[in-house]
Design a protein around this nucleic acid. Structure first.
Length: 738
DNA sequence: ATTAGGCGATTTTTT
DNA sequence: ATCGCCTAAT
C-alpha cells in the first residue's frame, strides 16, 4: 500500500476502485500514465494473477516503460501481464487461434505497402484499370470499411457510384487473396479476433476469463473495431478501465472515433468517472495558451486544467522569412537557451505537421553543429534493400506468402520480368499452387526461355535449401547465409557509391538486429522477429537517453514531454493542413493536434511560421495560421529576425494581409522574385480557392485540394471522383468553377 | 519479345 | 528516396 503515497488525492481516488467500469478523463500532463501504472501494480498487489490483466497502450515503448515501472513496484511477477498495443496483443492472440479462422500460425503481417500491392494484383486480375480507379483510394476505402466492421457485401449494397462498386468487388477478392497468402493486414489483427469471438462463444468465454481486468490508455484514439473488441472481452466481468483525453484525439483520419470516449458512460451507465485536472508538466503560461486554443472546439468533455507550477516565460512566436530562416532562428534559440537556461540538447523537441518539414530544420541544425535525431520519416524497415531481405525471410517462414515471393523473385536482378511473372501467376492459378510451389514446376510452364526457366528453378532451389537450413541453424545464421548467397552485400560494395554504401550498411544493420533480437529472446523464432518488425512504430525506436534534439511529427509526440518545444510551420495550409475541404470536424482535429503540441512543453514554448515556404518543389506564400489568432495576446512575445519586440496586441490576421510588406523588408534572395498580385488579379484562374468544386473537360468533377506556384506555373492538386488526385498546371487545365 | 535502366513526378498524420 | 512510365539494350 505504501506506494499510494506517491499519488495526489484525485489520482489516488482513480486507483482505489479496482472493479467495475471506470473512466478516467485525464488532461494533458496530469499523471495519466502514472495512474495507469499504479492501478495495474495494485491489481497485482491485491492478488490478481498478472496473466489476467490486459493493458493496452498506444505504443510498444509506453508498454515497455510501464512494465519496467510496475516491476519496480510489485516485483517480477508482473512480467506476465499482457501489455502492449492493440495490434501486438491481438497478433499474439491470433498466433494461438489463427487456425480456427482458416489461417496458419505462421501468417505474415502485411504493412500498407504490401497490402496496396495485393489490391493492385487483384485489380489487374479483374481487368480493372489502375488509371481509372486509384488503387490507393480503393485500399483506404477497404481499410476504412474493415475498421467500421463493414464487409464487402455491405459496401456493395451501399454503393452510390461506380467507385464504390469497384471497391466492393476488389474488397471481396482482396480478402480471399490475403487468406491465400496466409497474410493479415493491420486491420485484420483487430477484425479477425472479433469474428472469432462472435462465432465461437466458447473461445470468447475463455478470453473473458483470461482477461478479467482490462486497462486501456489513449482511449480517445480507439476505432470502432477496437471498441467492439473491448466490449466483447469486458462483457462478462466489466472490469474495464479506460483513460483518455478527448482534447487529444488526433487519429480520426484512421478511423478513431472520439465518440468512444464521449459516450463511455452511455455504454457503461454504472461507470465511475474520475477527472485528473492538475497538470504537473507545464508552466501557467503554456497551460493558459493551450486552454485558449482548445476552447474553440465545441465537442468536448468539460474540464478545467490547472497547475501549481510557476508562471514561466512568455511563449515566443518566431516570425520567419522562409523555411530556411525558420531553421536558423530555431537553431539560434536552442543555442541561446542552452546557455541561458542550462538546458541540454535532449531537452528540445522540434515538432511539425508533416515529415517533409524536417529537411530545412535539419540543415540548420547541422550547420550549427547541433546534434539531432529524427523520429519517423523514411523508416529503416521501409527501405527497399531491407524490405527485400525481409521478403526472403518471410517466404522462408510462410511459403504461401506470394507477395513477398514476388518481391524476392527478381532480387537481385536475374532476368525475370513482368511477362514471366504473369506466366508464372497464370500457371500457379491453373494448378492451384502457391508461387513458390509453381516455381518448382518451372519445367512445365510453356513459352519460357532457357535462361528464364533456369532462373526460376534456381529461386525454387534457393528456398528449398534455406528452408532446410532453417531447421538446423539459428535464425541469425540462416539470415546471414541467405544474404551471403544472394551476393547483395558484395554487389553494394563493388558499386561503391555513397548510396550503395548506405544500402550495404542497412542490410548489415538488419542482420545485427536479428542477432540482437535472438540473444534478447532466446526462445524466439524468425516469425517472432518478423512480427516485431511489422508492429514497431518509429517512436518505439526513439532513444531518449541520447543527448540530441528530437525532431518529429505532432502525431508522434503524443504522450511525450520536453522542457522546451518548438511547434513549427504555423501556417494556413500546413497547420491546419489543407487536404480536401477542411470541414469543421477536420479543423477541430487540426486544433487538437496543435493542442497536443503545446502541451508537450514544460518550461518553454516557441511557435514559428514562415512567409515563404517551399512545398512540393514550388514556392508558396502562406499566411500565419488562424490558430495564432486564438492565443491570448498578453502571454506572447513576438520575435522577428532576431529582434525581440513585445506583442502589441494586433491580431495576426493583420500580418496575414501584409505578407508582401514582410517580404519587401527582407534581404534574402527570395524577395527579389516578382511577387504575384493575387488581390488585383482579374483572371478567373486566380479566383480559384482550395476546397472549390471544379469541372475539368477530361476528368470531370473534382475538388481542389491545394494550390501552389505562381503566375504561369501555378498548379492545383485536384481530387477527382473518377480518377483520384491529379496535379494540373492551371495555365492549361481550364478549370471551371461549378 | 523481354528486361533493365534512366528519368520525371510525387509526399498528411500511422498501428 | 521511391514508384511508375518510357525507351534503349539484349
Amino acid at each position: 500500500m505504501s506506494f499510494l503515497s506517491d499519488l495526489n488525492p484525485s489520482q489516488r481516488e482513480a486507483v482505489k476502485i479496482l472493479e467495475g467500469p471506470v473512466i478516467i478523463v485525464a488532461g494533458a500532463g496530469s499523471g495519466k500514465t502514472r495512474v495507469l501504472t499504479y492501478r495495474t501494480a495494485r491489481l497485482v498487489q491485491v492478488g490478481v494473477p498478472a496473466y489476467q490483466i490486459l493493458a493496452l497502450t498506444f505504443t510498444n515503448k509506453a508498454a515497455k516503460e510501464m512494465k519496467e515501472r510496475i516491476a519496480q513496484l510489485v516485483g517480477s511477477s508482473s512480467k506476465s501481464i499482457w501489455m502492449g498495443t492493440f495490434h501486438s496483443m491481438f497478433a499474439r492472440v491470433l498466433r494461438l487461434e489463427s487456425e480456427k479462422l482458416g489461417y496458419g500460425r505462421n501468417f505474415t503481417i502485411y504493412d500498407e505497402q504490401d497490402s496496396l500491392k495485393v489490391v493492385k494484383n487483384v485489380m489487374n486480375a479483374q481487368g480493372i484499370s489502375l488509371q481509372q480507379f486509384n488503387p490507393q483510394a480503393i485500399r483506404s476505402r477497404i481499410s476504412g470499411a474493415k475498421n467500421r466492421l463493414v464487409g464487402p457485401e455491405e459496401v456493395a449494397s451501399q454503393a452510390v457510384d461506380q467507385f464504390d462498386e469497384v471497391s466492393a468487388k476488389v474488397f471481396a477478392r482482396y480478402q480471399k487473396a490475403m487468406k491465400r497468402n496466409n497474410a493479415m493486414d493491420f486491420d485484420d489483427l483487430l477484425v479477425l479476433p472479433i469474428h472469432l469471438f462472435e462465432h465461437n462463444k466458447k473461445i470468447l468465454n475463455d478470453y473473458q476469463e483470461r482477461f478479467r481486468f482490462i486497462l486501456v490508455d489513449e482511449y480517445q484514439d480507439t476505432n470502432k473495431a477496437q471498441y467492439v473488441l473491448l466490449k466483447q472481452l469486458a462483457a462478462k466481468y466489466k472490469n474495464i478501465c479506460v483513460v483518455g483525453d478527448d482534447a487529444q484525439s488526433i487519429y480520426a483520419f484512421r478511423g478513431a472515433e472520439i465518440r468512444n470516449i464521449l459516450d463511455y458512460q452511455v455504454d457503461y451507465p454504472e461507470a465511475k468517472l474520475f477527472r485528473l485536472e492538475q497538470n504537473y508538466r507545464s508552466t501557467k503560461t503554456i497551460l493558459a495558451i493551450a486552454d485558449s486554443v482548445i476552447k474553440n472546439n465545441v465537442d468536448q468533455i468539460p474540464k478545467n486544467l490547472w497547475t501549481d507550477n510557476q508562471t514561466g516565460e512568455p511563449v515566443a512566436i518566431l516570425e520567419c522569412a522562409d523555411d530556411k530562416d525558420e531553421g536558423i532562428q530555431i537553431a539560434q534559440r536552442i543555442l541561446e537557451d542552452i546557455y541561458r537556461l542550462k538546458l541540454d540538447f535532449k531537452d528540445f523537441a522540434l515538432l511539425y505537421r508533416t515529415n517533409a518539414q524536417s529537411r530545412s530544420l535539419e540543415d540548420a541544425l547541422r550547420k550549427n553543429g547541433i546534434p539531432y535525431t529524427i523520429v519517423g520519416g523514411i523508416e529503416f524497415y521501409q527501405r527497399k534493400e531491407v524490405k527485400d531481405v525481409l521478403a526472403f525471410l518471410r517466404v522462408l517462414t510462410n511459403p504461401l506468402d506470394n507477395e513477398s515471393f514476388l518481391r524476392a523473385l527478381n532480387c537481385p536482378n536475374r532476368g525475370i520480368g513482368d511477362v514471366t511473372v504473369e506466366r508464372l501467376q497464370a500457371f500457379a492459378e491453373r494448378k492451384g499452387l502457391s508461387l513458390l510451389d509453381a516455381v518448382h514446376h518451372a519445367a512445365e510452364i510453356s513459352h519460357l526461355g532457357a535462361r528464364t526457366r533456369g532462373a526460376l528453378l534456381w529461386v525454387g532451389d534457393f528456398f528449398k535449401r534455406h528452408q532446410h537450413l532453417k531447421t538446423i541453424m539459428s535464425m541469425s545464421e540462416v539470415s546471414r547465409t541467405m544474404v551471403d548467397e544472394l551476393g547483395i552485400l558484395r554487389q553494394f560494395k563493388e558499386e561503391g557509391t555513397p548510396d550503395a554504401i548506405a544500402r550495404w550498411e542497412n542490410v548489415q544493420e538488419l542482420l545485427s538486429a536479428i542477432s540482437e533480437f535472438s540473444s534478447e529472446h532466446p526462445e524466439a523464432n524468425l516469425e517472432n522477429f518478423l512480427e516485431e518488425v511489422s508492429l514497431v512504430s518509429d517512436i518505439d525506436n526513439w532513444d531518449d537517453a541520447h543527448n540530441a534534439v528530437t525532431l518529429m511529427t505532432l502525431h508522434s509526440a503524443k504522450g511525450l514531454e520536453f522542457p522546451a518545444a518548438f511547434i513549427t510551420g504555423l501556417e494556413e495550409g500546413l497547420l491546419p493542413l489543407f487536404t480536401t475541404v477542411l470541414g469543421n470536424k477536420e479543423l477541430e482535429e487540426e486544433r487538437r493536434l496543435f493542442y497536443v503540441g503545446i502541451t508537450r512543453a514544460m518550461r518553454n514554448l516557441y511557435l514559428s511560421f514562415a512567409g515563404v515556404r517551399y512545398r512540393y518543389g514550388d514556392v508558396t506564400y502562406p499566411s500565419p495560421s488562424r490558430f495564432l489568432d486564438e492565443i491570448g495576446s498578453e502571454r506572447i512575445q513576438r520575435i522577428t529576425s532576431g529582434k525581440h519586440s513585445s506583442f502589441s496586441g494586433d491580431e495576426f490576421s493583420g500580418t496575414r494581409r501584409s505578407n508582401r510588406r514582410v517580404r519587401a523588408e527582407g534581404s534574402s534572395d527570395y524577395f527579389t522574385d516578382p511577387i504575384p498580385d493575387y488581390e488585383n488579379a482579374t483572371d478567373t484562374v486566380q479566383s480559384l480557392q482550395v476546397g472549390m468544386t471544379v469541372h475539368h473537360d477530361v476528368f470531370g468533377k473534382g475538388r481542389i485540394v491545394s494550390l501552389s506556384g505562381t503566375g504561369e506555373s501555378m498548379k492545383a492538386s485536384v481530387e477527382f471522383s473518377s480518377v483520384g488526385r491529379k496535379q494540373l498546371l492551371l495555365k492549361y487545365a481550364r478549370l471551371k468553377v461549378v
